[in-house]
């Protein structure tokens, strides 16, 4: 019952979480690290109690939209996660973030930056390395949190040498942009029923809207936001990856056919977006830090042996 309720709340938060947070609704999820289904207080005594053998190497995993950390559970062994395997195989101490995925990515990223600051400050042993793993929207939160840490000179960023993104829509999600365009079209038609359909469609949360353009900026004017709402592609997009970190990308592809994969990717995120194939050649990532896994849809990327093998392989390399 607990996990099912958590899952139902995660879906609700993803759909209308910005409204829940704005109205102070008790169903809104507060961002926290979760362990064994419960929030982990970020105090040294609580961490000492929860972690019998804290490792100086930490891995923080961030889930995607409308889900919880349970998304990382393997179907046949729900308690077996990437984090659990990294602890067993490479000696990392895993931390799972749970958050309101309907709130804006900018807000969630800022909160994640603060949460990481509190974690490193309260951690029982000196931190040597902090590895960040973001799945889907979680990858965008990781990028935003790093950006905030850079701007605010938060010390935890110095521990981050490597970040991993799994199925993350770095260049946005076209499905959301298409939905936005259809909604705008329906709104423009002078008919009360089509406008009603448009209003219902516009109830989707800010977090989902942000996925359309991988929205990570915080200084946009209302005019720029309105312009972005009309465009199929935002003019300022994408935000560069932070240069001080080694970024590693895993993308899923439903088929081996390149054209179909280019269009549909893992069914939600196209390959160009998940694999950071920008129009700017100087922004391209080295080929050995981008892995496209064939035959995997978006959900499978969160709990798959091949994805874990790739993560492990990269993490075994000396940073």
């Amino acid at each position: 019952m607990g996990k099912k309720l958590d899952q139902a709340l995660a879906v609700l938060n993803g759909l209308v979480g910005d409204h829940l947070a704005r109205t102070g609704n008790g169903l809104a999820t507060e961002m926290a690290f979760y362990r064994g289904g419960a929030a982990l207080p970020l105090s040294r005594p609580a961490l000492i109690g929860a972690l019998p053998q804290p490792s100086p190497r930490l891995v923080v995993l961030v889930h995607g939209v409308m889900s919880t950390e349970a998304i990382f559970g393997f179907p046949l062994a729900p308690d077996d996660h990437y984090g659990h395997r990294l602890e067993r195989d490479l000696g990392f101490t895993p931390f799972y973030v749970r958050y309101n995925s309907g709130a804006s990515i900018v807000e969630n990223g800022a909160r994640l930056a603060q949460l990481l600051h509190e974690l490193v400050a309260a951690y029982p042993v000196p931190v040597e390395e902090l590895v960040l793993v973001g799945y889907s929207m979680g990858g965008l939160l990781v990028r935003r949190a790093c950006r905030v840490a850079e701007l605010e000179k938060l010390s935890w960023l110095s521990h981050v040498k490597r970040a991993f993104y799994v199925g993350t829509p770095h260049l946005g999600a076209p499905a959301e942009r298409l939905g936005r365009a259809v909604s705008a079209l329906l709104r423009a038609i002078d008919d009360p029923y089509t406008r009603l359909v448009s209003e219902v469609s516009d109830l989707r949360s800010q977090g989902i809207r942000d996925l359309g353009d991988a929205h990570l900026h915080d200084a946009d004017s209302p005019e720029a936001r309105a312009r972005e709402a009309r465009a199929l592609r935002a003019p300022h997009h994408p935000l560069p990856l932070l240069a001080s970190i080694k970024h590693h990308l895993i993308a899923g592809s439903l088929t081996t056919n390149d054209a179909v994969a280019w269009l549909f990717g893992d069914s939600i995120v196209p390959l160009t977006s998940a694999a950071w194939r920008t129009q700017q050649p100087n922004e391209a990532l080295p080929i050995d830090r981008v892995k496209v896994l064939r035959g995997l849809n978006h959900l499978m990327l969160a709990h798959n042996d091949d994805v874990y093998a790739q993560l492990r392989s990269w993490l075994e390399e000396t940073s």
Binding site: T23, N25, L27, P192, E199
Partner: peptide, 28 residues
């Protein structure tokens, strides 16, 4: 806290839903 949240959410849905349907009915 969660029950109160659910109550508030249903209340918001009825409030906004009634207003939207009212607008459609008046315009139609």
């Amino acid at each position: 806290k969660r029950w109160k949240g659910l109550r508030a959410l249903i209340g918001d849905a009825v409030e906004h839903g009634a207003s939207a349907i009212e607008r459609v009915q008046l315009e139609t």
